[in-house]
Design a binder for these strands. Structure first.
Lengths: 343, 343
DNA sequence: TTGCCCTTTTAGATCGATCCAAATTTATAA
DNA sequence: TTATAAATTTGGATCGATCTAAAAGGGCAA
């Protein structure tokens, strides 16, 4: 790279000492106004570019936070990053973003790489299957960290997420209200904490409504659109009588809806579907998706704020934050919010 | 942050000099095997974490590349980042990712921030409206840079993209083949280079097929799903007789398809639509989207490779690379590739 | 003028890894 | 064995901004 000009050059050009220039760059109130102007002008004229590596080395702080998510292709996380950037943008911190695609090795590599960069803090969506031993390095360094969306057992690191159990429960309450006698959860990795929470929410609703647990089943293995599409095919083979579908997330739901549309089955009328997340897409699917609003951007924002407060006040005793979420009724559940389309 | 242990500590523990430890960490072949083992063991035992800031300061290279895109929420760019990571992952370089949301100020901030971090190189999707003066800083520093997907006039920086003009032309050829007498381009920012290229492709096809330019019109202003949805509404009001639609991209196309589906208009039969990009979504929309395959991941990969060769061999005379693209025929154009669904 | 306090500026040490040239050890040839 | 080449190892300077503690400058009262 270029950038041959450094503090000393500016100092010479402005006729002051390096220390003074440094103070100016840090916007310190110690330096006299006239001097500040002079220095800034010199810096500008010489085309100076701040060297963050040098500053970081000396001051032991990088002005960067690391963000590790599963995939930027997932609209949920895309929205989360917007919330994060809102926080760190105004704070003047850069975001180092990485995606692990739910691969534990990649995740490890990313964490190490970010620790090497001496990020001021980390926000991590743990990859599927992450256990305490996978984040040992992280815990040892005591780097300020916040987990997003997934917990890791046995690790004392605050977790920000939404109340999936409650969300799933409310969704199922609504499906039962629509007269469903069997609930099917489609998509999601069986065994993952997120999947488990959905199951728990379903059971909670069952208990409250006096339904037997046998009425619950689970189909599909991933959280992609294709998984939803395939799951719907399977369900159609099995028969849809009394079935109400809770999708792992909106993406899965949209895949299932596509499959039903294609087969000429009227979603909402013949089979109700409820999603989770309330991604932008949910409004545009037809029929529009009834879903659990989880406010991904809000989650990002909250996670960012939490990390900041840990960094700044070392609130290491800070507890988990679970954001409330609520049912957004559109059409895929069968509630007739709009006149039926003609088709 | 933590990480109190440094090279000197390892050196002491292993009974060698700092220089030797440094060589080991760099995987230098100069150091004897036995020594290497010893040092690595010490580093491991002490829980050493490499300090990239220090290394970067001394060696004037950061092992990081900056990537600036418009939005991670756009699936096209999400796929591009996968291609990039494939390249830089094996090269051992971290990716510093930023999104400017087509805001010039944010873009400027991101560029400066990355230059401050002394990235080894930059890959930038210029924000809409970027002119030479907006990237002056960048040009002055002579940082290795590659533009992606959009050009900036008057700046000598290599550009990687796909042959949109040709793609649009082929798409229109196909629409004309289906008997369309009027071509409408929906979505995209009027005045942007990308929009202009699509128009040019359309005109090229017109010339070749002896069609008058009056047969071309343009509707919509953005490249979102909603823009496509709205544009379709407008077109339905105006009447669809003879209309063939070229969408700015697949997202816009999917919005339009949703609107038509809702109105009971059979896409493909009553109005053909062709998209551009061939994002994963294109396969799942119904009817499946006929589109111009632009291989976003390939574009990312190529851009990454190009940047690497600039960094490594200083191929500053390197020219633009325009990737070929081709028409992928599915159903939205009216070609009856599948039995018609029952509905 | 001197003394005191407050504002502003500064020299020099420092962060931790890398580079260089030179020193040391080991291997090979004569 | 000694000379010579090759393989390893090393001390000390260095990258550029920041920190600390202390110096310099200015204002004002006595």
């Amino acid at each position: 790279m270029s950038g041959k000009v450094n503090l000393k050059d500016i100092a010479q050009h402005a006729g002051v000492s390096r220390s003074t220039v440094s103070l100016v760059l840090q916007e310190s109130p110690l330096v006299a106004d006239a001097t500040r102007q002079k220095v800034k002008a010199s810096a500008e004229k010489l085309g100076y570019i701040y060297n963050r590596a040098a500053a970081s080395l000396r001051s032991q702080t990088s002005g960067t936070v690391g963000v590790i998510i599963s995939s930027v292709g997932n609209p949920f996380f895309a929205e989360v990053t917007l919330g994060l950037e809102k926080v760190f943008g105004i704070e003047g911190k850069s975001v180092l973003l990485g995606q692990h695609s739910d691969d534990l090795v990649t995740q490890e590599r990313l964490i190490v790489s970010m620790l090497e960069s001496r990020v001021d803090g980390l926000i991590i969506v743990p990859a599927y299957g992450t256990e305490a031993r996978h984040v040992g390095r992280l815990v040892n360094t005591k780097a300020p960290t916040v987990f997003l969306n997934r917990k890791v057992n046995g690790v004392k690191i605050p977790y920000i997420g939404s109340d999936t159990i409650y969300g799933a429960k409310v969704a199922v309450d609504h499906l039962l209200f629509h007269g469903c006698s069997r609930i099917v959860l489609i998509g999601g990795r069986i065994g993952s904490s997120a999947h488990g929470e959905r199951l728990e929410g379903i059971r909670k609703s069952f208990v409250e409504n006096g339904i037997s647990v046998e009425k619950l089943s689970s189909v599909g293995e991933l959280s992609t659109r294709k998984a939803g599409y395939d799951a719907a095919q399977i369900l159609m083979k099995r028969g849809l009588k009394g079935v109400g579908i809770l999708a792992y997330n909106d993406i899965v739901a949209s895949g299932a809806i596509a499959a039903f549309n294609e087969a000429g089955i009227v979603v909402g009328k013949e089979v109700p579907i409820i999603g989770i997340d309330d991604v932008e897409l949910a409004q545009y699917v037809r029929p529009a998706l009834t879903t659990i609003h989880t406010d991904p951007m809000g989650i990002g924002y909250t996670a960012g704020q939490t990390l900041l407060s840990i960094i700044q006040h070392d609130d290491s005793k800070l507890k988990n934050i679970i954001l409330e979420n609520e049912l957004v009724i559109r059409q895929s559940c069968g509630c007739d919010t709009n006149k039926e389309k003609i088709k």
